[in-house]
Structures are given as structure tokens and as C-alpha cells.
Design a protein around this nucleic acid. Structure first.
Length: 298
DNA sequence: GGTCAACCTCTAGA
DNA sequence: ATCTAGAGGTTGA
């Protein structure tokens, strides 16, 4: 199956999108990306404006549109967040980068695991979890594993989770699975309520603080105004946006809860309704270019 | 209310 | 080869 995109109205770059640290389960072999959407294996290749894909077992092609948020009006979003030359560079260099709409449960576990780790390490942890606990799925060409269910991870032993190299995250993963299983929180419900209320609910899950909550809200629960602040965004804000911040923020030491709240709120008010897109462009730009301590942006 | 170390272990670069 | 610093933070004292 294939989809023809009009790149003027629907810019899309699958490499930027899948490499920018918002999702950890995709692998590229030659020109083809392999991953899983809605419990189906998917292989997808982009050549300019042409998306070719296979799904197994069969699923409607509309899942592609939904997962990659191809219905977001990206040119309009870019226009709205293009506030200065600093983000402007990121927007220019990373044309076609999109946020995706991933499975909330997978997103919760992924970002619990993402604490105090780098991207290769996160990918490895997630893959280990899937291989150890996920349902095996095979098409004619290769095998992969579904993301394990809450029930599966809740019944895993700590030592089994440690064997996946989760380290101190093992108990958080187990507790989060139990939390979901007991129905203490309904992730689907969070999709339909406003950002502030959804943001309050998530930290009830052990291992989920403000930053992880914002990532979950942005990458899986349609809260495009969420503005996660990690070490890198923190550094970018205090070096490139210092003139917008009160002097007490211009401090590169640890990101305290209070500073987090203030910096995230700044990002939301400065970039607006699509602040999350701005955050992702800034973050992805740092992956390609190291953050300089150069002059602030006008 | 705020600060501070501890947490697992992997990865990149010296 | 071997070592060190740092990694998409959170928790509990």
C-alpha cells in the first residue's frame, strides 16, 4: 500500500520523526523502517513524497495517518512556533519532523525507563522488555515482539525485570503496571480531558514525575501544548533564552521542581498552543548540533 | 517550601 | 585496553 503526500501542505520526514527521541522501538534497515503500530508489524519506506508500507496482520491504512499525525497542519504549526532565529534554525534544518501519536501505555513505560539514561540505553531496555515479555509476532521476513501488556509486566518478578537491565527502574515498571492493572488510572480517559487535569493524574504512578508526565502527555495523549524540560532543554533555555527568564533561572545547576514548573510554563506561554512541537524541534536540533554557550537570541 | 545524595549500568570519548 | 563523565529524572531524607 502507499500514500502520496503533498509535501507543501503535508511536510513529512520519517527519519527525523523516528530518530528524534520521542519513540524507541523503530529500526531502520537500508531504507525501510520496521516497527509496530496497533499490534501489527509495519514496514514503511519514504521516497520523497511517497510512503510505501506493509502491515501484518492486515490493518487499515488510516492507522498510518493517525500514528504519524499526518492530519496535523504542520505548516501552520511551524508558522505559529517560529518565534525567533534560534528555533528558526531548528525548523529549517529539521523540515518534516512530526510528533507522533504513540500508545499511551508503551509511552508510560518508555519514559519511566528514560530517566537518567541515554537514547541507545533506552532502546536497549525497551527491546529487552519486549523480547522477554511481549507476544512474539512473525511475518514472512522477520520477527518482532509486541509491547508487553500491563498484566504481563505486573506479574513479572523484579529479578526478571533486572535481567532486562532496567536497574533501579525495575520496581517502577512493576509498580506502574500494577497501578494500571488495578484501574487506579485510565490512560484513555486522560486523552479527552484538558492538559492541567491530566498532568495532575500521571505523577500518581511511581517513577512518573513532572518531566515524564509531560512526555507522556505530548507523545501519546494529544497534549500538544505540553513542554517537557529535560537537561538539554534546560541548557538551551538558560543559554539561548536567558533574556526572557528572570535571573534566578539562569543557573545551570539541577532542575528543581519549582524551576521545572517555571521553565515549562515559560515554554508554553512563549511558543503557544503547539509548544510541544517547539520543544521537540529544539531537542532534536541539539542531537545534531551541540548546544553552544553563545549569545542569546533577540 | 527548598536542597541533596542515591539510584543501575550503559555509552561515548579520553 | 581501561577509565571517567554523563546520560530525555525521581524519590526520600
Amino acid at each position: 500500500m502507499q500514500i502520496k503526500l503533498d509535501l507543501d501542505t503535508t511536510p513529512f520526514n520519517i527519519d527525523f520523526t523516528l530518530r528524534c527521541g520521542q519513540v524507541f522501538r523503530w529500526q531502520k534497515e537500508f531504507n525501510t523502517w520496521r516497527g509496530i503500530i496497533n499490534e501489527s508489524l509495519i514496514e514503511i519506506t519514504q521516497r520523497h513524497n511517497n510512503l510505501t508500507f506493509d502491515l501484518y496482520p492486515t490493518t487499515k491504512p488510516t492507522v498510518i495517518q493517525r500514528y504519524f499525525r499526518l492530519d496535523d497542519d504542520l505548516p501552520c504549526i511551524i508558522h505559529s512556533i517560529n518565534k525567533d532565529s534560534n528555533i528558526g534554525k531548528a525548523l529549517t534544518q529539521l523540515q518534516g519532523l512530526r510528533l507522533i501519536r504513540q500508545d499511551p501505555w508503551e509511552c508510560v513505560i518508555s519514559f519511566i525507563c528514560a530517566t537518567f539514561a541515554n537514547i541507545p540505553r533506552i532502546k536497549s531496555m525497551i527491546y529487552n522488555l519486549c523480547r522477554a515479555f511481549g507476544h512474539r509476532i512473525t511475518n514472512k521476513r522477520y520477527t518482532d515482539y509486541l509491547f508487553p501488556s500491563p498484566r504481563k509486566l505486573a506479574s513479572a518478578s523484579i529479578s526478571q525485570l533486572l535481567a532486562c537491565n532496567l536497574g533501579y527502574r525495575a520496581r517502577y515498571v512493576k509498580a506502574a503496571a500494577e497501578h494500571i492493572l488495578k484501574g487506579k488510572i485510565c490512560l484513555q480517559h486522560l486523552q479527552s480531558i484538558p492538559y492541567p487535569e491530566a498532568k495532575q493524574e500521571l505523577p500518581h504512578i511511581e517513577g512518573v514525575g513532572q518531566k515524564v508526565a509531560d512526555c507522556i502527555l505530548l507523545f501519546s495523549l494529544d497534549k500538544l501544548n505540553a513542554f517537557p524540560v529535560d537537561r538539554w532543554i534546560h541548557r538551551i533555555l538558560v543559554t539561548q533564552y536567558q533574556r526572557f527568564l528572570s535571573t534566578k533561572h539562569v543557573d545551570q545547576r539541577s532542575l528543581t521542581p519549582r524551576r521545572y514548573k517555571e521553565l515549562s510554563a515559560f515554554g508554553q506561554s512563549y511558543f503557544g498552543d503547539y509548544a510541544g512541537y517547539a520543544q521537540e524541534y529544539l531537542y532534536a536540533y541539539h542531537l545534531t548540533l551541540p548546544v553552544t554557550t553563545g549569545s542569546p537570541v533577540p
